[in-house]
Nucleic acid binder design. Sequence first.
RNA 1: GCGCUCGUAGCUCAACCGGAUAGAGCAACGGCCUUCUAAGCCGUAGGUCGCAGGUUCGAGUCCUGCCGGGCGCGCCA
Length: 585
Amino acid sequence: MKAHIAELINTALTALIADGTLAADTQPNILVENTRDKAHGDFATNVALTLAKAARCNPRELAQKICNALPASDKVTKTEIAGPGFINFFITQASAYAVVETILEQGKAFGRAQPNSGPRVQVEFVSANPTGPLHVGHGRGAAYGATAADLLEAAGMQVEREYYVNDAGRQMSILAVSVWLRYLEQLGQSFNFPSNGYQGEYVNEIAQWLMRDHGEAFNRPAVEVFADITPDEPQGGDKELHIDALIERAQAMLGDDYETVFNAGLNSILGDIREDLGEFGIHYQEWFSERSLTSNGDVDRALEKLQARGYLFEQEGNLWFRSTDFGDDKDRVVKRANGQTTYFASDIAYHMNKFERGFDQVVNIWGADHHGYITRVKAAIQALGYDPERLIVKLVQFAILYRGSERVQMSTRSGSFVTLRELRDEVGKDACRFFYVTRKADQHMDFDLDLAKSESKDNPVFYIQYAHARVCSVLRKLEEDGLSWDKTQGLAALQRLDSEVEKDLVTQMGKYPETLHNAALNYEPHTLANYLKDLAGDFHAYYNTNKMLIDDAELRNARLTLSVAVRQILANGLTLLGVSAPEQM
RNA sequence: GCGCUCGUAGCUCAACCGGAUAGAGCAACGGCCUUCUAAGCCGUAGGUCGCAGGUUCGAGUCCUGCCGGGCGCGCCA
């Protein structure tokens, strides 16, 4: 409908250019928007306002001329000039209601673009270090990333979801040592567990599995393990130096077995994360290993490429990337004097790798605490010869959990944090997925556990699902009464639905495709969540004021047709958000 | 200190590329109702969009400064 109106305006403008009212080189940007107030009709345009200056006449006058030049349309009942020079369009009920039939025809596809008609996009999200279970902070990134990806797919793009597995860093080594030490404890040895080690119970479990699969193969005397190790912090030393020394010692004493222990930790936790996300309704096309970037030579190749382009320099034995050439605060080390490449070097290689895989666009979903990295990564991309605009970074703020008005304390120390799994167990997958994306991603959010669990209309998830279930319920009741829904008759009788609530409902339904489109392109799932809440509200209002199961068959079928169309949109929208659309509650 | 980000009703949040009288839901207040689905429905009130300038036909939205909150500022990952 918007396109139709834009077409009418375009025709009018062409006529005005022909008669000299507008300059021949006029480049009109025709914006047709939904009106906020029903008194302003159904759609409005501000072209007269934007073109008034160039046309050197006042906006209302120009608006009048545009109106006069508008071609006739059987879909428009009248136009009005209002305010400073808006042109308001009132459309016929028949054309407004046509969307109902479209919804029923297209079903699940309603609102979605032609599949795979758009560019290839990669969305990388969560990518938490596999050193422990996901916590509630990761949950928001997971829900947001998954929904953003699904929305892009609905907008026609070819989407690949990817998890970057940080399996190469020091944190992983600390995990390996933690697992090994717990394993030694289980073999009856006792010593002070390093304060910087991973304390969570899951480390003990991994140690147990290690023992089950390998017996005592990795047993070594604790006195030898800790011999001459620089003291831990509680003993007056440095916890970082202490754990580093232990890592070195573990590698020396275990030899080739070190990798077995290391992989036991990595695979166990990664498996857990994969299962956790799977149960959260999130599935990846690719789990990309950081280690593979070193083994396949991408890191070296990326550095060579930067070298060849003249962006690397040496200082005090370290190799630096001159990121200040691209607006960064300071230059960054990519290779230390000891020959070790930095994490940033892996990141450069990773992004090079992404673009080499042919993605038109690369989206990174990061925790908000990583915002400082955007500049340097974009700098690297540009230095490698790619357009940095092709990388889109979306930041996700942490969520703060509340139980009623009381804040839930979380501590990442000593492994007592609230895990995503615990959250899912408590409030359920649907509420989790919905609540996480109901606020703008870069906004702090309060997550009320009690509200998420409540079965009342205050709970938006319940409220929307209930609207869906209500339609199902009415159809069941209909059947119990020995009747059935006649779609054809319903569609033919839609014009009988001329109350305000019904018109509002249809108007709201008509906005679904653009809501979806905008939510996808702006990476703003929360607008879809809000839309569904509004649609459910409109439907509940309708349901409360109009009885469905009435004797007048024509009217009954018209109302049911409208309701089934609402149900279709609710189901489509909920599915995109990763929330189920139950038939009864 | 420098950088990024946020600041909208008592609370939690919206506001479609800069558009018309800034909207919902809770809470508050007033009324109605006992139903095809489950305490529901209707209405009222509530605002200097952090503050001050600027840009223009028009600013919550863009620019500058200030105030306040969050985060970042390692050869860590």
